[in-house]
Computed example of a mutant assay.
Amino acid sequence: MARYTGPKSKIARKFREPIFGPDKALERRNYPPGQHGPNKRRGKQSEYAIQLAEKQKAKYTYGILERQFSNMFKKATRMKGITGENLLQLCELRLDNVIYRLGVAPSRRAARQLVTHKHIVVNGQVVNIPSYSLKPGDVVEVREKSKSLEAISDSLSSAGNRSNDWLTWNPSQMSGTVVNVPNREMISENIKEQLIVELYSK
C-alpha cells in the first residue's frame, strides 16, 4: 500500500476520531463512511478486527507505511521496557512528528513536506528523511534560508498552545531541542498500544 493521499475526513470518520486535527466533517457526521449512512447495521467486531483497526489508526496518525511500522515494532520488542510504549516513543521521535510537535508545521503531512524539501536542519546538517529517528540532545531547527517562509511563520503563530514536556523551543533561533524520550503520559494520542502488541504477537 502506498502512502494514503485521499480524503482525510473519510479516515477520521472511519475511526470516529480527529486523527488529522480538527475536522468539521467529523463533527457533522460522526459515523463511519458508506452509502447507507448511520442506519447501516454493523455487526459486532471480532477481537482481531479491533486490534487491526487500532494498528491502522496508529499508522494513519503518524503517516507510516506497513513495512516501516512492522520494522518499528520489531525494534520496539528488542528495546528495554514495555513494547507498546516503546513503539509509541519511536513514532514520536520521528523527525516529521517532532517538527509537528514543535509547531513548525500544522500537521504531520505538512511537516513531512518541509523535511523532504530540505527546510529542516538537525545538529547543523540538512536532513530530508521524515523517518529520521531523533534522540535526547538533538537540536532541530529551520534552515536559515527557510526562516522567512510564510507557511512556517503562520504555523508557529497559530501553535502558541502546543506545549510538550519533552521538547523545548527557542523562537528567536527557530530551533527546538529533544530534552528526553517521552513517556506514555506525555503522548497525547488516543492509541491503545496494547492492542497493537497483541495483534503482532499472534
Rank of each mutant, 00 (worst) to 15 (best):
T5V: 10
K10Q: 10
E17G: 02
E17F: 02
K24E: 13
Y31N: 01
Y31S: 04
P32D: 02
P33S: 03
Q35G: 04
H36Y: 11
N39M: 08
S46R: 07
S46G: 14
A49W: 10
Q56R: 14
Y60G: 01
Y60Q: 06
T61R: 11
I64H: 01
R67T: 14
Q68F: 11
F69S: 03
S70E: 14
M72F: 12
F73Y: 13
F73D: 00
I82A: 10
G84M: 06
L87N: 08
L87R: 06
L88G: 05
Q89S: 05
L90S: 06
L90M: 11
E92G: 07
R94L: 06
L95H: 03
D96Q: 06
G103E: 02
G103Y: 06
V104I: 15
A105W: 04
R108Q: 02
R108N: 06
R112Q: 10
R112S: 04
L114A: 08
L114R: 01
T116P: 05
H117Y: 11
N123P: 05
Q125V: 14
V126T: 15
N128A: 15
P130Y: 04
Y132W: 10
S133T: 15
L134Y: 00
K135S: 15
K147A: 10
S153H: 08
S157L: 14
N161H: 11
D165Q: 12
T168M: 09
W169C: 00
V178H: 01
N183S: 12
R184D: 09
S188H: 11
E189D: 14
N190G: 01
N190P: 05
V197R: 00
L199A: 07
L199T: 06
L199I: 09
Y200I: 07
K202P: 03
